[in-house]
């Protein structure tokens, strides 16, 4: 298995402000996890490519892009109480978005079996017209939109601990995108209820699986089996894009789920089996703020993409969350059967 590894480590010039948890040290942590797991020699380096304005504009409004560019020319500034741009942020955000497009094109050329992208700033909170939650450009959405423009059907699996409100909003009524999110609830950004199932043209194609604090990985595996697998089978995706945040790890300071690196390995394996075809999976780094947890979890994910059983921590189980998953299944069933009446 050849895994393409696209990283902005050492090149990113984005800073929110000193001491902010979403900092350049995160990409170095991914590098160190990969090295410690002995994966570095098995990855094929991926070079990014410039992203064109029209590729951004499939997802973001022209006014929003102009405003980000203006703030970049101003030297940076605050976007919301969590998020800022520095000198170099725009360039780094473009590089992150372009890395996704480069990964898709390389996989289409048959150069690899999957791709893992260590990029920042993260993207899944960014809406069409608003930066928020550390996110500027919605990297996974820009790649998904490119695939949709090419007639492809896309499954986005978002296991970041926070709901990807931006991705949900962007593809809310798009019948070519199945968006699936597991996330802590209640938590930032306040969206992500189970009853949010998609717009009129994409009813059922928005799958939110809210989980209570303390949830362990067995609940996520149950969600994959009971909710995600049937939705994916019915949808029939051509591509799997993963919003791979690692802040559901039990050590992460930004949330309260109890997952381990082994859980991320299991989820990666299960997600790959859902798609059932090689060469069409791209994982994008989203959150993950405990650097040791990020190192272990990202390495476990990359190893699972390779088909290697590397679990530096055992998968977790025994916590709450299974009942929430079953309740979500019931809520979705009610919502969708109601829509058909």
């Amino acid at each position: 298995m050849v895994i393409l590894f696209g990283s902005l480590s050492g090149q990113d010039r984005h800073s929110n402000w000193p001491g902010h948890p979403e900092g350049p040290g995160r990409l170095a942590a991914v590098d160190s996890g990969m090295a410690a797991a002995g994966l570095a020699d098995h990855l094929s380096p991926l070079t990014g490519r410039p992203v064109r304005r029209e590729e951004l504009a499939r997802v973001h409004s022209e006014d929003y892009l102009d405003a980000l560019l203006a703030l970049d020319r101003f030297g940076g500034g605050e976007l919301d109480p969590d998020t800022a741009m520095s000198e170099g942020s725009w360039e780094t955000a473009l590089a992150a978005a372009g890395m996704g497009l480069a990964a898709i094109e390389a996989l289409e050329r048959g150069e690899g079996d999957a791709a893992f992208l260590a990029v920042r700033p993260p993207g899944h909170h960014a809406t069409a017209s608003q930066a928020m939650g550390f996110c500027l450009l919605n990297n996974v959405a820009i790649s998904a939109a490119a695939l949709v423009a090419d007639g492809q059907r896309v499954l986005i699996l978002d296991w970041d601990v926070h709901h990807g409100n931006g991705t949900q909003e962007i593809f809310w009524d798009d019948p070519a995108v199945l968006y699936v999110s597991t996330h802590q609830w209640p938590a930032y950004p306040g969206t992500g209820r189970a009853a949010e199932v998609g717009g009129p043209a994409a009813r059922g194609l928005n799958v939110n699986i809210p989980l209570p604090p303390g949830t362990t990985g067995d609940a996520a595996r149950l969600a994959m089996e009971k909710i995600v697998a049937p939705a994916v089978e019915s949808f029939g995706p051509d591509w799997l894009l993963i919003s791979a945040g690692f802040d559901a790890h039990r050590r992460d300071p930004m949330a309260d789920l109890d997952w381990t690196a082994g859980d991320f390995a299991d989820l990666t394996r299960d997600a790959g089996s859902l798609l059932g075809r090689p060469g069409r999976t791209v994982a994008f780094l989203e959150g993950g703020y405990d650097l040791e947890a990020l190192a272990l979890s990202s390495a476990a994910t990359m190893a699972a993409l390779m088909g290697v059983a590397y679990r530096p921590e055992a998968p977790s189980s025994g916590g709450p969350g299974r009942e929430a998953v079953l309740a979500t299944a019931r809520i979705r069933e009610r919502q969708l059967s109601g829509a058909e009446q």
Binding site: G19, H20, P21, D80, P81, D82, H125, G133, F134, H162, Q184, A187, Y188, P189, G190, P213, D252, P253, M254, A255, D256
Partner: peptide, 19 residues
């Protein structure tokens, strides 16, 4: 009050439990 992402971190950057 709008509760942001960073408010999960208490004074000094330590994590506050959900409850």
């Amino acid at each position: 009050h709008a509760v942001g992402l960073l408010e999960k971190l208490g004074p000094g950057g330590s994590s506050l439990p959900a409850a």
